[in-house]
Design a binder for these strands. Structure first.
Lengths: 240, 240
DNA sequence: TGCATTTTTTATGTCGACAAAACCCGGACG
DNA sequence: CGTCCGGGTTTTGTCGACATAAAAAATGCA
């Protein structure tokens, strides 16, 4: 069994010493992280040849990873011409918020009804990490762990359609939330922690109505925070 | 020999006389139709080389089309081995129905609130086609026009996230619905036509509550029909 | 005969190369 | 002075070929 394949196993070695199906997944994961982490600026061009050189592989696996990313809307490919990192659309965010709040409600309600014991343990673990991030005032970690928390709830609900849409919304939100959390206010994250705790309690009690109500308030509150932040917290206040 | 070009051979004579970006789209559209129309049996294997021979092009565009189809869940690719048409999962359909009914409600409510005049015209046109299909007793056309009707409503609502999920659900449903509509009962389709009309009226009146209520009943009724059909219309009825 | 092992086969993952389409940039022309 | 056209450049779309993993077939042995 030739399992000891680490690097440069082929002396003839055109094909790099990596396992056969791993190239696409690696490129996909890395690019996805870089897009969501805003290391790749929205709107910037993505060059296949450059990526091929960077990852030391041919353009074919790069291209496949790009097609998958395009399928999730993270990059946009103009026909026959450049492919760009999808710009985040700050103009019409109302549909985004509508969908986000609805998924908050639906997933939390389903989780309250259908969760298993192990699911709730995972949710609590995510909540602990989120609380730690809040204590550490680590904005990046807060974004990531908050998304993981709600995604764990969605998975406890057991509806793959909701989970998929929710994940996409949370991903897309990661890029916007970074604008938000960069200027966060100290007491707000702690409030989120408390609301998370209340949601966990409602789910543990299998109180679907209460869980959904809390999720709705949670979501609408976040939406309101972002809206006031983007539209300007203090409007122009002129006494006539 | 793949000499059967769809169009007359172009005099340029280069590799395949078709326009540059069209190969992938053509393969994607055709395969998608064949999958949703059940001409490709769920679970059957998909061979890249065979498709390449069939469409008279290299494996590369075939592969890209397959990646995109896999991104929508229409095909499933096992690593390093065969890719198969995704089998329709008749066991746990509860999540599917949950998502479907929720999208019925959300899209119809949004459409009632936010539709423009042109949107409603498109919806009415789809409804006319659906009614025609019902009159003609054309099960295939009924499935297609019904999906188009609800999709038109979703687009009138103007939320791309809901529209995308709804389209995916309706697509996936097309494969199951064919099992259902093949043995349809005469008066049911007419009932759907009437319910559609009521939904249009509520949307035209911008009565969001009523539109959502009708959409919910509509969806739940369809779900119930399919459930009784699949689980057996007449349950075992033994008087003890 | 039945099972383990090796060989063959088949389909996929990856590669380097070629061709076409869109941009860039001068230059001619009105 | 602005606009249109042609060549050069760059990047993408497509191709044929090779390497490799997993299944299928063939072989050997108890």
């Amino acid at each position: 069994m030739p399992t000891a394949r680490t690097k440069a196993a082929k002396p003839d070695g055109a094909a790099g010493g990596r396992k056969r199906g791993s190239g696409v997944k690696r490129v996909y994961d890395i690019l996805r992280d870089e897009i969501l982490g805003l290391q790749l600026v929205p709107g910037s061009m993505v060059d296949e040849a450059g990526l091929a050189a960077r990852f030391g592989m041919s353009r074919t696996p790069i291209r496949e990873a790009l097609v998958r990313l395009a399928g999730e809307g993270l990059i946009t490919t103009l026909p026959n011409r450049s492919t760009v990192v999808s710009p985040l659309d700050l103009l019409n965010m109302a549909p985004y918020f509508d969908a986000l709040v609805l998924m908050y409600r639906a997933t939390t309600r389903l989780a309250a009804q259908r969760h298993q014991a192990a699911d709730l343990m995972r949710v609590r673990a995510c909540q602990a990490e989120f609380a730690a991030a809040v204590r550490g005032q680590d904005a990046m970690a807060m974004i990531a762990t908050n998304a993981a928390f709600h995604l764990a709830i969605a998975e406890a609900g057991g509806n793959p359609y909701f989970t998929a849409l929710f994940q996409r919304l949370l991903d897309e939100g990661r890029r916007m939330l970074r604008l938000y959390y960069q200027s966060y206010d100290d007491q707000l994250p702690q409030r989120f922690v408390d609301e998370h705790e209340a949601m966990i309690a409602a789910m543990a009690a299998r109180d679907a109505e209460e869980a959904e109500r809390l999720a709705r308030l949670h979501g609408e509150q976040i939406v309101e925070q972002i809206r006031t932040l983007l539209c300007g917290a203090e409007r122009l206040d002129i006494a006539l």
